[in-house]
């Protein structure tokens, strides 16, 4: 393929732990092929050398938690033809969206010696709350095979094989015995977006909901059946995807 046809890729970080963007470097077997198809123009975790925009595709990690970031994401959108958000922070606000249920000023007073220096927003919000997003990839962290699939689909102008059904479908496809029905282990699988490959139930644990709400989730029915106390149900839904609509509603229903 001619070099002129190479599309440019940029990777951007907002409020996040960097784990999702590192999934790109984790693609050890495919990285060279990927670099042959894409010019990695901006990826500070990999190289301090950058190429000026605009970019064909931007991967955005992290949520918006500061006024500065709320401005910066607009600049990223403006210089990106396609914008793909990766991970629970960018798609749902992340673990830091726990602040949405609390008083952020109180936190800053407790944590920082000089809270006046801290300029932060009262909420952590997903990228889609600020700019249009072309595709959202769920997960805390994202699954690197799914990241590769999204990039692959983009390069080949086809729909990504990223399904929004339950984790249960993944459990059943791999033959895992249901930990909820057979062991009585609380599990968020029936309300959680597929994508991880149903790892936890394969290791005898319930799903923690790392990939956020599935399509048409029904937490109220699951919660009613679970027998868990309200206090526990609030905690179950307040993790990496606490601010994702259906999970937020579920936790608030038990407060």
């Amino acid at each position: 393929m001619a070099a002129a046809a190479k599309k440019t890729l940029a990777v951007w970080k907002f409020s996040s732990c960097d784990g999702c963007q590192l999934s790109l470097l984790d693609l050890e077997d495919e990285l060279l092929t990927l670099a042959a198809r894409l010019e990695i123009a901006q990826f500070l975790e990999a190289s301090s050398a950058t190429v000026a925009g605009p970019y064909d595709v931007s991967l955005v990690e992290g949520s918006i938690t500061t006024p500065h970031d709320a401005e910066r994401i607009r600049a990223v959108r403006a210089c990106s033809r396609a914008l793909i958000t990766i991970g629970a922070c960018a798609t749902a606000g992340g673990i830091q969206a726990l602040r949405n249920f609390a008083d952020v000023e109180e936190f800053t007073r407790a944590v920082y010696a000089s809270p006046d220096y801290i300029s932060t927003l009262a909420t952590s919000t997903p990228i889609s709350a600020h700019v249009p997003v072309d595709f959202e990839l769920n997960g805390c962290p994202i699954n690197k095979r799914q990241l590769l699939e999204v990039i692959n689909a983009y390069l080949n102008a086809r729909r990504p094989r990223v399904r929004a059904h339950s984790v249960c479908v993944e459990c059943k496809r791999r033959g895992t015995v249901c930990v909820m029905v057979a062991h009585g282990t609380p599990c968020l699988g029936p309300v959680t977006h597929a994508g991880c490959g149903a790892i936890c139930p394969a290791y005898d644990r319930g799903c923690y909901g790392c990939f956020g709400p599935k399509e048409t989730p029904n937490p109220a029915s699951l919660d009613h059946w679970s027998g868990l106390e309200d206090r526990d149900l609030v905690r179950v839904y307040r993790t990496y995807n606490a601010a994702a609509g259906p999970f937020r509603n579920a936790s608030e229903a038990h407060e």
Partner: peptide, 13 residues
């Protein structure tokens, strides 16, 4: 439908 999780387990098993 108020109880159904649309999880697909019934069809898978």
């Amino acid at each position: 439908a108020e109880r159904c999780l649309t999880c697909g387990n019934c069809t898978m098993v």
